[in-house]
Amino acid sequence: MDKGNYTAVTEFFLVGLSHYPGLQISLYVLCLLMYLVILLGNSILIIISILDSHLHTPMYFFLGNLSFLDICYTSSFIPKILINFTSERKSISFLGCTLQMVISLGLGSTECILLAVMAYDRYVAICNPLRYTIIMNKRLCAQMAAWTWVAGFLIALIQTVLAMIKPFCGNIIDHITCEILALLKLICVDISLNVFIMTVGSIVLLITPLMLIFFSYIFILATILRINSSEGRKKAFSTCSAHLTVVILFYGSALFMYMKPKSKDTKTSDEIIVLSYGVVTPMLNPIIYSLRNKEVKGAVKKKVLFRNLFSRKI
């Protein structure tokens, strides 16, 4: 393609699903409801983990990070999706598209690493319980959480900059968000470097953390099977089942989206997948951790009971 035949882009038009107005109305209602559930559910988890002293442990520290991350992640693109679903001019400025891409990519990348960190926490708790509080001290937990955010946003910034500095042949993005795979097909010049960096990023952010999670759970399973007490095995399984469920939901859709060989084409199914791991998973995270965790349910009940008693005294 002629490298000189490009357009000076000041804004993009997000035309994904524009050919399905009926579907857009249904998705608007669905996304709005799910977004409200995400805000409510994850906020409750954060508040409970802060207020209840029994939940001041590494597991709930990382869970609070995950909830905060999910709120920020969904807030980076769902409001814009809702606006575009009800607007005839489905546009976003160049700067707005850049910010949306780097924030959503950064937060999504951070979650990939954070899930691996949470798997390591479960590994230490079950395989080395006597030294758990020594190994997973407050300083180490804070450093691990901080580095997940730094690494996630650093990789996202590199991918975004390499994409946005290239010349574009048009400004119509066949997607509902400024998604990097959809944006790459507008670039007029060779994108081999972009594809290479994305492949490396996928290995670092998807394959490597997934392998760490996989090996962590092999050791966890081996340790659990050596526990003589059936009650002990059940308790150990319950502490890991919620995290494992979240990992399967998140990585399943993310791997399908980013690891398949495609850089120039986007399909309607990809937009549905984006909504799957970008909206459904953050919505289910607090539900999964609440339903599968007795400590969280106990903390919620205790706070509700305390509030009821306090209101009666008043």
Rank of each mutant, 00 (worst) to 15 (best):
S216T: 13
D270T: 02
L114H: 06
N128W: 05
I165K: 08
I135T: 15
S75H: 09
G64Q: 10
Y20H: 12
I71D: 05
F77A: 03
L23A: 14
I218E: 13
C188E: 05
F250S: 04
A8Y: 03
P282I: 02
N137M: 11
N128T: 15
S75I: 07
Y20W: 07
L17F: 14
S91I: 04
S230G: 12
I50A: 06
A146W: 00
N128C: 13
C127T: 15
I48F: 06
G201H: 05
F13W: 00
L244T: 05
V195N: 07
S87R: 08
L183Y: 10
G41R: 04
G96H: 07
I213V: 14
A299K: 06
M144P: 05
S269Y: 13
F168M: 11
K267Q: 11
N42Y: 03
V304R: 10
V246R: 00
F153E: 05
K166N: 13
L69R: 10
I81Y: 06
L244R: 01
L32D: 00
P282S: 03
I272Y: 09
I248F: 12
C31E: 12
Y60L: 04
T199I: 00
H56A: 13
G232L: 01
Y20V: 04
T160N: 08
I191N: 14
Y289W: 04
V9H: 06
G298A: 07
P21Y: 11
F168N: 03
T239N: 10
S67L: 03
K294F: 06
H19K: 09
K262M: 12
I191D: 15
C169L: 02
L55M: 13
